[in-house]
Simulated scan of single mutants.
Amino acid sequence: MVLDLRAKLDANGYYDDFEVERVAKIETDPSATQARLSSAMAPVADRLLKRYRAAQLARADALGSGDEPVAQAQKDIMDALQLFKGDMGAYVRLYAFLSQMIDYGNTDIEKRFIFYKRLIPLLEFGRERETVDLSKVVLTHHTLRSAGRQPMNLRDDGKGDYRLPPMDAMGTGDVQEKERALLREIIEKVNGLFAGQLTDGDQLQYVNGALREKMLENPTLIEQSASNSKEQFANSPDLREALTHAIMDALEAHTMMSSQALGSERIREGLLDILLGPAQLYEGLRAQATGADAASRDPG
């Protein structure tokens, strides 16, 4: 169940391995400072809070204009983010309980536990501030030690064997079927673009996480998506330049894939096809443009 939750959370593409590693390294470093932890957590939380706020504003704008399909699409984004937060909480609770009895033998599982535990308090969806409220992030250090094997006499009479009923599946629910279908389509299209031993999760985080998130922050692309059709937007030279910059920015965290993408126009064109298709980059940029426009009209 821990592994299933980890796969489900990774598949959302809301963070990448580099961000998890950075937080875990700071958390377990005796010489780390509060400022380092805050600077590591702020970009992740800020990105997710802005995504929720943009969807919230876009939904309100769509409801005001009677555009039900757009309003529902934005609500799906908000629901998915709430679901993501709930699933992180389920992971933290399940890991904290089972780690008392199980040696997972995999540090990536504990690193995510540390990362999720730090991220959850920062995601106050619906109560966003101008800046991320980092007052709930307080640097502490922890140690793990073996207390040996302890008897667990669960029966009152201390006799016989008593088996606990197994846990049911954890998590707050399934991601919407439409979103799962889009994620599957991304994986199918990315497969074959890159050489080397890469998991579906690696490729999904790279395209739907690192590249898409970076391009969603590009003000030029946001502006162009608001004033052009998707076909016109796809032919923008700024789009290809933004992809190259995103690939270069992701080089440290995703060295193998970024190096291959920088050296191959075929891969870059394939990535653009995925970003404009199942990754819904254009739709995400349009939502941000709509949200920004709604915010500028909001006197609050």
Results as ranks from 00 to 15, higher is better:
K50M: 06
Q34C: 12
L119W: 07
D67F: 10
F115Y: 09
L164P: 01
F18V: 09
R129G: 13
D293L: 15
R297D: 10
S135C: 03
K178E: 13
H142Y: 09
Q203G: 15
E177C: 07
I120D: 08
A60P: 00
D108Y: 10
L285F: 06
A292T: 03
V138T: 11
L243N: 11
G13I: 10
A246F: 08
L48C: 04
G126F: 04
F18E: 04
T140W: 00
R297C: 00
D76I: 13
N12L: 05
E241S: 15
L83I: 03
H254M: 15
E269D: 15
G105S: 11
G284W: 01
R129F: 10
Y52N: 12
Q100R: 14
E283Q: 14
I77K: 09
P69I: 12
E213L: 14
E177I: 01
E21A: 15
T220N: 04
I120W: 03
Q260Y: 11
P30H: 05
K75Y: 08
S31G: 02
T290S: 11
R53D: 12
R93P: 02
R112T: 00
V175C: 00
S258G: 06
A96Y: 07
G160W: 02
E283F: 05
A226Y: 05
G160N: 04
E179M: 13
F113N: 00
D4T: 13
G64E: 11
D103C: 07
M256W: 08
V70E: 06
E252R: 13
L9I: 15
A250V: 10
T255W: 07
D174Y: 09
R129P: 02
Q280I: 02
F18N: 11
Q224H: 00
M215V: 08
A73D: 09
L262Y: 01
D4Y: 14
G126D: 04
G86S: 05
V190G: 03
P237Q: 06
I274T: 08
S99P: 02
S259L: 15
F115D: 07
L81G: 02
Q197D: 14
L5I: 04
V207H: 08
F115N: 09
E217C: 06
R286Y: 05
I114H: 06
R268Y: 07
Q197A: 14
M170R: 08
E269N: 15
Y91K: 05
P219W: 00
L193T: 09
E130H: 08
Y52H: 15
V20Q: 14
R127C: 09
Q100V: 12
